[in-house]
Write a protein that binds this DNA or RNA. Structure first.
Length: 278
DNA sequence: TATAATGTTAGACT
DNA sequence: AAGTCTAACATTAT
């Protein structure tokens, strides 16, 4: 469900609520998510996004730790932690101000003094790992800020991997998923089956430019709500109004009028215009 | 009832 | 070696 724009939306919203708040309790309702030992009592510092991961920085457990001892504490149990959360396909975060009934599929509850944060996840693919680790770094770590054509060409090298699979490969580029890969390539006029290494610099520039429109607009729209995506406050995003190919098989291409086609590529639905994506 | 779903990974195969 | 495909994870919606 969530790709970069959806995760970015959640992080921005979490940052308006959580920093400075102490975790009063954590309840894990789905044992696949692991254990919450040693998390209660910590204070949230900042929330950030790494690709599709949400990183919640949680301070050391012991209040009143003397300044000179900070360095040691960092390496001890009880030192600062990153709570790394990945929502995978159907994970959602939902902020509840009061103790209203839990929505179906609630898998984890973080309680704060002003409300509680719920992880809702029907398919139970979401992962939660508190620790000192960071998400695996990618050469293009944040396409929202930095997505230059030259770097894309360098990283693509002479790979024969289809350009769509390349854009979605988290080892190269962090955050792009199926919807936005389809949309970026359509706007750039590039066939998703093209080997990544076959794109010329001018074509990578089109990809850069398209991503520069598609991704920030999706963030501004608070994501794409085609089925169940909702933001932290339960609101739908509006980016579905801007989709030009994803899920639009048979509808006319916004650019040339030819009917949009759907095919399967590396196991994923792939929508494109057979006439103007070359 | 069969299929597909906004993600990732492992393993088998080419 | 690099890329493709399938299955797996668990569940819902059409």
């Amino acid at each position: 469900m969530p790709e970069l724009p959806e995760v970015e939306t959640l992080c921005r919203q979490l940052n308006t609520l959580l920093p400075g708040q102490q975790i009063l309790a954590i309840e894990i309702l789905d044992p696949r998510l692991g254990t919450a030992a040693g998390l209660a009592g910590r204070t949230i510092e900042a929330v950030s996004r790494q690709g599709k991961y949400i990183k919640i920085g949680a301070g050391a457990t012991t209040p009143g730790c003397k300044p000179g001892r900070e360095k040691r504490r960092r390496t001890e149990a009880g030192g600062p932690l990153n709570l790394l959360l990945h929502l995978r396909m159907t994970g959602r975060l939902f902020w509840q101000r009061d103790e209203a009934p839990l929505p179906p599929y609630t898998r984890m509850i973080f309680s704060f003094s002003g409300g509680r944060l719920l992880l809702i996840d029907p398919r139970r693919f979401a992962t939660f790992s508190p620790g000192t680790a960071e998400a695996a770094p990618a050469p293009l770590a944040n396409p929202l800020e930095e997505f230059p054509a030259r770097r894309l060409r360098e990283i693509a090298g002479d790979r024969r991997l289809p350009v769509k699979a390349f854009l979605m490969d988290q080892r190269f580029i962090a955050g792009i998923g199926n919807i936005y890969a389809c949309e970026i390539l359509h706007k750039a006029g590039i066939d998703p089956r093209r080997p990544a290494g076959s794109l010329k610099l001018a074509e990578w520039r089109k990809v850069e430019k398209s991503a520069g429109v598609v991704l920030p607009r999706a963030v501004a729209c608070r994501g794409t709500s085609i089925s169940d995506w909702r933001d932290l406050f339960g609101m739908s995003g509006t980016n579905q109004d801007h989709l030009e190919v994803y899920g639009r098989e048979g509808e006319p291409c916004s650019h040339c009028g030819a009917p949009i086609e759907r095919m399967k590529m590396s196991g994923r639905g792939t929508w494109f215009c057979p006439s103007c994506q070359e």
